[in-house]
Design a protein around this nucleic acid. Structure first.
Length: 477
RNA sequence: GUCCCUUUCGUCUAGUGGUUAAGACACUGCUCUUUCACGGCAGUAACAUGAGUUCAAUUCUCAUAGGGGACACCA
């Protein structure tokens, strides 16, 4: 039997997400229980959004969770490079092949035209014939070197059947599948091309990925067929959901892995909880299995998208914490607090008279969510409505910051003050309560810097909710 | 809108052609404890609906409804 090879293929376009952890975990375990290998491949074909700082974070946090790989950009391997942006020459070579056999075509359409064309079609599916330009126009655009993309030729009729390990065969009509762009106008590949070529070249036997890929699998199958390659086994995992049942979104900040680390969840909690969302069959499993060596059967995963339940996660974390030896726990506590201690020290040092002052001065960086009540905001002279307004504006301002440092954050807070035409002194009070949990304490800007984006924003959100603001309109955009 | 996936307590999961449908989180009560928490005990609570197959369906089939996803020169 061929040796199992799976891949973890994150895209470095944002801070790593709990969904990434889930998919990575199952790839890791599937390889492990089958004595196979795991490949980590960075899918950075989107050059505009990919950032190396995100790649670093992804590697760091997967390591933190204890997920391991045998080949990857950080450790190398026989099938490298493991960053798609470093493999562009390869893809071109394979596109040449497709051009030779006539399975792709050049498309000179502009994005405005595409938009119009899609509007005209009920199913929004664009095929080769929909994209055709009349002869004159085509000649003109070619002559004047208009930018073009290379698209996949897709059958117009018939059915595409492919096999999913969890669901059996899935059938789709070819007329529903559009002529996917394989090479963008800048000459770089799209995900679909790079992914198939790399999975083939890297000898991936099992593609374990999220359910959102099911509908593009026919395109991938077509590529395998055109190249004459054997398909890997496809396994589409159900998507993790928010309590409102929507897909666990990258936009919702509190789903970043780092958020859970900062809040004080242990890596084994996250790993075991994620594992429990489907793959694990025993009932008394939580207490008995602190690692997932046993009883994982990927084929038994439940197909309803599970809701990521914070209550249960916290309960599990408690189980692990209480089962630790004191020395170990002290170590864990120190590791967790160390960063905060180092960062808060310069701020509190001028205020310390006796050592016992320390706790009171620095507690705001240690509680994940301050335990606030509605009444806590009533001490502020500012009207309720305006408090909410201030916090909502701050929420928005803090969403996009290039670098999370004092200067930028201060600038954003000043923006809020300008926007609302209110003095700093006025707007800062509700921010103090929301973030620091009280009015008299160290600089709130400083706290925000130390806490980082995830924790800061969840505190603001909590405050808005407490004061009585209903929703954050821009929360999920 | 079109297509695809999906459906067991509020949530995560077991399970079965004939079961008192199981466990865990959450919730409630009791207990332990100086309080709280932890622990222990107990309780509330589910097979989406309709039709078919069958002696029998939560389990098999089909339809309907709910939920989710995809429909980009993003992954």
């Amino acid at each position: 039997m061929k040796k199992i090879r799976t891949r973890i293929a994150p895209s470095p376009t944002g801070t790593p997400h709990i969904g990434t952890a889930y998919i990575s975990l199952l790839n890791y375990y599937f390889a492990r229980i089958n004595n196979g290998k795991v490949i980590l491949r960075i899918e950075d074909t989107d050059s505009k959004r990919s950032k190396s700082k995100f790649e670093n974070k992804i590697l760091e946090l997967l390591h933190w969770l204890g997920i391991q790989w045998h080949e990857g950009p950080d450790i190398g391997g026989k099938f490298g490079p493991y960053r798609q942006s470093e493999r562009n020459n390869l893809y071109n070579k394979y596109v040449e092949k497709l051009i030779k056999v006539g399975k792709v075509f050049k498309c000179y359409r502009t994005s405005e035209e595409l938009e119009k064309l899609r509007k005209c079609k009920v199913d929004k599916t664009l095929k080769e014939k929909d994209l055709q330009l009349d002869y004159k126009e085509l000649k003109f655009r070619k002559k004047h070197n208009w930018p073009y993309v290379i698209r996949l030729k897709v059958p117009n009729k018939g059915k595409c059947v492919f096999y999913d390990v969890l669901r059996g065969s899935i059938t789709m009509n070819w007329d529903q599948i559009d002529s996917q762009v394989l090479i963008k106008s800048d000459g770089t590949p799209t995900y679909h091309l790079a992914n198939v070529v790399d999975d083939y070249l890297m000898g991936i036997t099992n593609v374990i990925r999220g359910e959102e890929w099911i509908t593009s699998t026919p395109k991938h199958k077509l590529l395998y067929d055109y190249f004459g390659w054997k398909q890997p086994e496809f396994c589409h995992l159900p998507l993790l959901r928010n309590p409102d049942k929507s897909k666990l979104s990258k936009r919702k900040q509190n789903n970043s892995i780092e958020f859970y680390r900062k809040m004080g969840y242990l890596p084994q909690t996250i790993i075991n909880y994620l594992g429990s969302l489907g793959g694990v069959k025993t009932t008394k499993w939580y207490r008995k299995n602190t690692n997932m060596k046993t009883k994982v059967d990927i084929k038994s995963i439940s197909l309803g998208g599970p809701i990521f339940d914070l209550d249960k996660l916290s309960w599990l974390n408690g189980i692990y914490i209480r089962s630790m030896k004191n020395e170990t726990l002290i170590q864990v506590m120190y590791e967790w607090a160390k960063d905060y201690i180092h960062k808060i020290l310069p701020t509190i040092k001028p205020r310390i008279k006796i050592l016992t002052d320390i706790i009171h001065l620095s507690e705001q960086v240690f509680y994940g969510l301050p335990k606030l009540k509605k009444e806590d905001f009533k001490v502020i002279a500012l009207k309720k409505k305006l408090q909410i307004k201030v916090l909502k504006h701050l929420w928005l301002q803090l969403e996009y910051i290039e670098k999370w440092d004092k200067q930028n954050i201060l600038y954003k807070v000043k923006q809020v003050s300008n926007q609302l035409q209110m003095k700093m002194k006025t707007i800062i009070a509700p921010i103090f309560i929301a973030i620091n949990g009280r009015l008299i304490s160290t600089s709130v800007i400083n706290t925000i810097v130390i806490l980082g984006k995830d924790i800061t924003r969840i505190r603001i959100k909590q405050a808005i909710k407490l004061i009585g603001g209903i929703t954050l309109k821009h929360e999920n955009k």
